[in-house]
Structure formats: structure tokens, C-alpha cells
């Protein structure tokens, strides 16, 4: 079983301390390509949560049978097989959802987060812990990619939740900035994603630094050092 403290550590690591996107800086390829709006980022993260939870369970359950020397090929085999099985099952049984999430599932194969968590956590921990690790790493990715997508979308085209009508046909995207907003192409291109990701990382480090200062009961660090947010 899993103790409360262990659970909290896993959740804390996944969501904040070891956040895949802004601390481990993993899976940048899908991150740059997909987060042109918040909905895409969230959908990719949801698909990743499913795949990471499953691959972590599988590897953690089989970890005692996998010789150390060939662990990487075996991990790749397990992850690739699971992604394909998830893809097939989604397509066959949850076809409506598949039409929405489907294009993101094959993308996950190119996502090194899955392999990184399998290698760094599931290979050394019991299945239950590993499942939570997979889920919370995904949750960390979810809010980061959602936020990054929302920022890029707002700066780039002045809308929020663009593409939501593909998921829920009844909901319309929100036009936050006036219709006459000319758009800011850089935010929608990969370099814009890099710049905004840099801002997010700076913000996270600033939050951590401030928390550390507070812990030491010293005056907070001057904010003007980080001008982005």
C-alpha cells in the first residue's frame, strides 16, 4: 500500500517540483508543436496521462523480470506496444473520444517523458506508486501545457479555448481581445513557445526562490529581476 506522505511526495513532484515541462524540460517536440491553443495542450496531456499510468503499471509490475542490461529495449517495447493498444482500443470502443484525442496518441510515442518516467521511477518502485507517478506527472504536464497554450493563443490570436467546438460542439471559443486584434504570429510559432516556456520557467523559479526566502524569514527577492510575468 501507499502511505499518505509518499502519495503527497509523488503528487508534489509531478505537479510542481519535478514538473516535466518546466523542470525536467522533457517532451519539447510535442510541446512546441501542439500548444498553439489551450485545448490542444490539455488534450495531449490527457492522452499522456492515460499512456503514462498504463506504461508505469506495466513496467513496475514486470520490473523484477527485466535484466538491467536490456531494460531500455524492453521499456521501448512495452511503451510502444501499450500506446498502440490504447490507440486501437480507443478507436474501437470510444470512437467519439478517439476522433478528438486520436491524433495525439501516436504523438506520445515521440514523447520522451513516458520513457523517462519508466526509467527513473517505475523501474524502481511498486506498481501503485508508479501509477500515481504517471498520473501526476501527466497532471503537471496538463496545467503547464494548458497555461502555455492559453498564453500563446491569447497573444497570437486573441481567443481562448479555440478548437473547443471539436471536443464539445455546443461550446464556442471565447474572443477575449477585440475582433480587430491583428494577431501576433510569433506567439503561435515554435520560437514563441520557447520564449513563453522560458517565462514560465522563470516564474516557477521565482516562486520557488520566494518560498525559500520566506522559509528563511528574510525579505522577499526583488521582483524586477524577472520581468516576464
Amino acid at each position: 500500500m501507499i502511505s499518505r506522505d509518499e502519495f503527497r511526495t509523488i503528487a508534489d513532484n509531478g505537479i510542481w517540483k519535478q514538473n516535466t515541462s518546466i523542470v525536467q524540460i522533457l517532451g519539447l517536440c510535442p510541446l512546441l508543436a501542439v500548444t498553439t491553443n489551450a485545448v490542444n495542450g490539455i488534450m495531449l496531456s490527457l492522452a499522456t496521462i492515460i499512456v503514462m499510468a498504463l506504461s508505469n503499471i506495466a513496467v513496475a509490475s514486470l520490473r523484477n523480470f527485466i535484466p538491467h542490461e536490456i531494460r531500455i529495449p524492453v521499456f521501448i517495447l512495452i511503451v510502444a506496444a501499450l500506446v498502440t493498444v490504447v490507440d486501437l482500443l480507443f478507436n474501437a470502443n470510444l470512437h467519439e473520444l478517439y476522433l478528438v484525442l486520436g491524433i495525439f496518441i501516436p504523438l506520445i510515442v515521440t514523447n520522451c517523458i513516458v520513457l523517462a518516467r519508466v526509467e527513473a521511477f517505475a523501474a524502481k518502485n511498486p506498481p501503485l506508486h508508479s501509477t500515481f507517478d504517471g498520473v501526476f506527472m501527466g497532471v503537471g504536464m496538463l496545467w503547464t501545457l494548458g497555461l502555455l497554450g492559453a498564453m500563446r493563443e491569447l497573444l497570437g490570436s486573441g481567443t481562448l479555448l479555440g478548437g473547443i467546438d471539436m471536443v464539445f460542439p455546443s461550446i464556442q471559443p471565447i474572443q477575449l481581445l477585440p475582433e480587430s486584434y491583428p494577431g501576433f504570429l510569433l506567439a503561435l510559432l515554435p520560437p514563441g513557445a520557447f520564449i513563453l516556456l522560458g517565462c514560465l520557467i522563470a516564474w516557477k523559479n521565482w516562486m520557488d526562490a520566494r518560498a525559500a526566502e520566506k522559509a528563511k524569514r528574510k525579505p522577499p527577492v526583488p521582483a524586477e529581476v524577472f520581468g516576464c510575468n
Partner: peptide
């Protein structure tokens, strides 16, 4: 051991494929 893993997961894949 690697061979056994390949057999198991290929079997899983083809099972899922046939089933779906």
C-alpha cells in the same frame, strides 16, 4: 528474456488488433 518479452507484447498487440 528479451525474446520472451517480444513474444508477449507482440501477442498482446496482435490480440488487440484482432479484437478491435
Amino acid at each position: 528474456i528479451l525474446f520472451v518479452f517480444v513474444i508477449i507484447f507482440t501477442g498482446l498487440l496482435s490480440g488487440a488488433y484482432q479484437w478491435t
